Amino acid sequence: MARDGADPQARILEAARTEFAAYGLAGGRIDRIAKRASASKERLYAYYSNKERLFLEVLELNLREFASDAVLTDHDVPAFAGALFDHAVLHGDHLRMIDWARLESDGTWRPALEVMLGYRDEQVRRIRLAQEAGRVDAAWDPVELMTLIFGIASAWVHEPGASPAPGGIPDPAAMAGRRTNVIRAVERLIAPCAIRPIN
């Protein structure tokens, strides 16, 4: 249930996050969201004209939080990969929302997508700076490298056998090992002596 003391709109957004991450846009139910938020459907529709508008609001909120949570700093790309992994583990619902948007949207999620593209472009710029500083193999195209790093960092979340059951608690030792492997993989990927990518 939503947290006591939060204003109705905040409760609705929080409840919608849970609902849409689990069921997507098509499967999400406004009545369940309203019940979880301890709000009436009429109050919900006063804030959001329809279910899709609420879905897009949640998606954009998630992406903005992600964009502020995992940022490449000090040319430290492996640490950046570790931060991406941490976010994927702690906020798997964010990745699920992106997946749902890709599957169900007809293109109306563009404003939220632009948040993600802006984030990506900024990290690509920072990767270029890390290349100029000699911290990353200059043979990589920064855009392609960013995609590979994101894929490595989020691999455990998308691998069915590695994810805990819904509501389950990840094993701390397993998570620490996977995080270490993510960082090591990225270290090898960006090392100047790494095998050059095929053009």
Results as ranks from 00 to 15, higher is better:
Met1Arg: 14
Ala2Gln: 03
Asp4Gln: 10
Leu13Asp: 05
Glu19Gly: 08
Glu19His: 09
Phe20Met: 09
Ile30Ala: 12
Asp31Gln: 08
Ile33Val: 14
Arg36Met: 04
Ser40Glu: 03
Glu42Arg: 12
Tyr45Ser: 06
Ala46Val: 05
Asn50Ile: 01
Lys51Val: 05
Lys51Trp: 05
Lys51Ala: 04
Lys51His: 07
Phe55Thr: 08
Leu56Glu: 10
Leu59Cys: 09
Leu61Pro: 00
Arg64Val: 05
Glu65Pro: 03
Phe66Thr: 05
Ala70Asp: 02
Asp74Asn: 00
Gly82Arg: 05
Asp86Arg: 11
His87Thr: 01
Ala88Trp: 02
His94Pro: 00
Leu95Val: 09
Leu95Pro: 01
Leu95Gly: 13
Met97Trp: 04
Ile98Arg: 13
Asp99Phe: 13
Arg102Thr: 08
Arg102Val: 14
Arg102Ala: 10
Leu113Lys: 10
Met116Asp: 11
Leu117Arg: 15
Tyr119Ile: 09
Glu122Cys: 00
Val124Trp: 00
Arg126Glu: 10
Leu129Pro: 01
Ala130Glu: 04
Ala130Val: 00
Glu132Ala: 14
Ala133Glu: 00
Ala133Arg: 03
Asp137Val: 00
Ala139Phe: 04
Asp141Ala: 12
Pro142Arg: 11
Leu145Ser: 06
Leu148His: 12
Gly151Glu: 10
Ala155Tyr: 14
Ala155Pro: 03
Gly167Ser: 06
Pro170Arg: 06
Ala173Asp: 14
Arg179Asn: 03
Arg179Met: 02
Thr180Arg: 14
Asn181Ser: 12
Ile183Trp: 00
Arg184Asp: 10
Cys193Asp: 13
Ile198His: 11
Ile198Glu: 14
Asn199Lys: 12
